[in-house]
Design a protein around this nucleic acid. Structure first.
Lengths: 349, 349
DNA sequence: CTCCCGGATTAAAAGGTTTCAAAACCTCGT
DNA sequence: ACGAGGTTTTGAAACCTTTTAATCCGGGAG
C-alpha cells in the first residue's frame, strides 16, 4: 500500500494528516471517508476495508474540533469539583465516569479548589469549549453565573448542593437528616452534651447538618444549649486537631462527652488530638464524622460516620445530564438522597 | 442600545449568538469583532467600546472550537492520572494547575483508575480534541501508544515514571533513593529484620523502592534475607491490614521488628491492624510509609514517611510541557527529584 | 490637482469535518 | 439494448472563527 510522500514517514515537519489525505491515498472522496467513520453501513465492504487500511497506515486521527463545529455538540462532559483533594468528590466523580462511559462520553474533571475565581475561569472555558454539559459542585450556589449558563442553553446539573432554580436539575443528599441521625445515635448512647465541630456556618452543608443536630436534640426534649459549637476556619484535618485542644480546655463540668463533626477530616483530626491529649475514644469522647471516606474505617479507632451514597450521587447526576441533552422536552428535577449512619467503634464498643 | 430580534431576549428557541450577530448588532464587520477580541489595539476606541457593549448585552461567548480549528492549537492541557482517589496524584495535579493558570491555560483531569482500557480511551479522545499537550502517569510506561502519540507531534510529559525514550520529557522522583533512606533510618534505630510491604513487583515504583531497601541493608553489611517480603495484590488500606495479620502470624523468633511500606495507604492499614492486634507502634513494630500524604501526619500514631515533592513534581512537569509547546527547538529532558524522610512517632519516640 | 501615507475597516479565504442532494454505477427484467 | 430501482459514491455547502490582503478615508507633500 503506497502512501503520498506528503504524509508519509512523517518524522518532523509533516503536517497532521486529515481526511483529505486519507481520501487521496485511498482513491475516494472525503465524503466516503466520513461515511466509513460514521455510517459504515452505507459503504461497500471493499472500499470500507481499503479506507480503514489507509487510516491505520497513515495513523489518521479525527479532528474532533472540526467535527464538533459541524455537528454542533461534543462528546465531553465536565465536572467542576469543589475540592479535588477530598476523597468524597473523587468518589462522586467515579460514579459520573461510570455513566459517562456507558453513554460513550468522556468526563473531564476540573478542580476549583474552593476558589470562586478559578471556578469562574473554568466555567467560561467550558462554555467556550461548548462541552455537552456541565456538572458542578459550586463554591457559591447562589452565583448568578450558574443561571446565566443554564439560560444560554448549556445543560447543567448541580451536585451535592441545592438551590431554588428551575433552570437545571440538581442532586443532593439530605444534610438535615444526616445531622439528625448522627446526633440521635449519640443521644441513644446516653450523651447529653454534644460538641458540633464545623466550618463556617455560611457553608450550606454545615448549616444544615447543624440544623439536623438541633432537631434531634429537640426531639429528645433537650434545648439548643446542649449543643456546644466549635467552629473552625477551614475543614481540614488540622482544624479538627485545633478543635480538640479547645475542647480539652473546657472545664470538665461543662465539657461535652461526644462530638459531631461536619466532615471526616475534622473527625480524624479530632481523633488524633484525643490520642495526643490522652483522651480515650469513645470512653472520654465519642466521635461521629460525616462522609464515611475510606480513611474513616481505617482510623486506629474506626470512625462512626454518616455515609452519603457518593457513587450513586455521581451516577444519577450524570444520568440527568445525559437525559437533558438527549430529550429536548426534559423536565428539570431535584433529586435528594438520604444518608445512613455507619456505626463503628468511635461511638460504641 | 437596540438589538435585532433574532438574537434578542433569547428565552428558548434562539440560536446561539455568534460573531455574526454581534457584528450585525454593532454595525461593523465580523473581522472587526474578531479584532476587538484578539487585537484590541488595532481598533479605534469608539468602535471598540461599542462592540464590547454589544458583546455584553448579547452574552456572546466565543466558540473555542471554531477558533481552534482556524489557529490550530487549543488552550487546554490534560493530566491523565493513575488514581484520582490517591491524594498523591491530586496534589501533583494541584502543582500543574498552578503553572497552567500562570500560562493562561486550563488543566483538565482524567482519571484512568489504573485501567489500561480507560487510559487508552482518554488518550485517543484527547488526541482527537487536539489538546495542547498531555501529562500522564501511565498504567504501563512501556505502552507503545505513548510513543505513537509523541511521534504524531502531540507534546507529552511522563509524570512520576521513567522510561527510556527520547520522544518526550519526563519528571520523576528517585525511588531507589527513597527506599534507601527509609531503610537506613530503620537500621539506625537498631532494627535488623525488616518487612517490605508492597504491591506486585511488576510495578516499577515498588520494585525500585525495594531495590533501595536492599541497597541500604547491603551498605550495613546485611544480606537480602534480612528483608521479609509481604506482597499484596493491591495497594489500598485494606491490603495493609492483611499484611499486618500475616506479619503477626509469623513466629516471634523470625518476626521483623520494623516494616517499610510501599505507600502510605498500606502503612495506615498496617497501623490499624497493629492496634487491633495489640501490637504497639513503634515498640513492637516500627513503620515507615511512602508519599507522606496528609493522613500520614494525622494518624493516631503519626507516620514516618518518605516525602516526595509532589506539588513541585506537577509544577515542573507542566512547565516542561509549556516550554515544549512554545519552543520548537525544545530538547527533551528527564528530570529527577530526590525524596526526603519525614520522621515521626511511628519509628521513634 | 494628483499621489501617497497611515490608520481603521472590510471582504474573502482558510481550516477539517459532516451532510445532503445529485450523480454514478449495478443488477435485472423486459 | 434499455430503463427501473437500488446501492455507492461524489461534490459542494455549511459550521464559526481568524487572518490577510485589499479598500477606504482624510490630509500633507509635491
Amino acid at each position: 500500500m503506497t502512501v503520498p510522500d506528503t504524509a508519509g514517514t512523517g518524522s518532523a515537519g509533516s503536517r497532521t494528516v486529515g481526511m483529505k489525505d486519507v481520501a487521496a491515498a485511498a482513491g475516494v472522496s472525503v465524503g466516503t471517508v466520513s461515511n466509513v467513520l460514521n455510517r459504515p453501513g452505507l459503504v461497500s465492504r471493499a472500499t470500507r476495508t481499503k479506507v480503514e487500511a489507509v487510516i491505520a497506515e497513515l495513523r489518521f486521527v479525527r479532528n474532533e474540533t472540526a467535527r464538533h463545529l459541524r455537528v454542533g455538540h461534543s462528546r465531553v462532559l465536565a465536572y467542576v469539583m469543589l475540592d479535588g483533594r477530598n476523597p468524597f468528590f473523587t468518589d462522586v466523580a467515579g460514579g459520573m465516569e461510570d455513566t459517562a462511559g456507558e453513554a460513550d462520553l468522556s468526563l473531564f474533571l476540573c478542580n476549583s479548589a474552593n476558589l470562586a475565581a478559578r471556578e469562574a475561569a473554568y466555567l467560561t472555558r467550558l462554555e467556550q469549549q461548548r462541552v455537552q454539559g456541565i456538572l458542578i459542585t459550586p463554591v457559591d450556589p447562589g452565583s448568578p453565573q450558574l443561571d446565566e449558563i443554564a439560560r444560554r442553553g448549556m445543560p447543567l446539573v448541580i451536585v451535592d448542593r441545592t438551590r431554588n432554580s428551575d433552570s437545571h436539575c440538581s442532586v443532593a443528599v439530605d444534610d438535615v437528616v444526616g445531622g439528625e441521625i448522627a446526633v440521635r445515635h449519640l443521644l441513644e448512647q446516653g450523651h447529653e452534651r454534644i460538641a458540633f465541630v464545623g466550618g463556617q456556618l455560611d457553608i450550606g452543608q454545615v448549616r444544615e447538618r447543624r440544623e439536623g443536630a438541633l432537631r434531634a436534640l429537640l426531639a429528645a426534649g433537650l434545648g439548643p444549649d446542649h449543643l456546644v459549637d466549635l467552629t473552625t476556619s477551614r475543614m481540614a484535618v488540622a482544624d479538627g486537631g485545633n478543635a480538640g485542644r479547645r475542647l480539652a480546655g473546657l472545664p470538665s463540668a461543662t465539657r461535652p462527652t461526644a462530638a459531631f463533626c461536619a466532615n471526616d477530616l475534622l473527625a480524624l483530626g479530632l481523633l488524633q488530638a484525643c490520642a495526643a491529649l490522652r483522651m480515650r475514644v469513645p470512653d472520654d469522647l465519642a466521635i461521629v464524622g460525616y462522609d464515611d471516606i475510606e480513611f474513616a474505617a481505617a482510623a486506629t479507632v474506626p470512625l462512626t460516620s454518616v455515609r452519603q451514597p457518593r457513587r450513586r450521587l455521581g451516577r444519577t447526576a450524570a444520568e440527568l445530564l445525559v437525559q437533558e441533552t438527549a430529550d429536548p422536552t426534559h423536565e428539570h428535577r431535584q433529586v435528594t438522597f438520604t444518608p445512613e449512619l455507619v456505626v463503628r467503634e468511635s461511638t460504641y464498643q
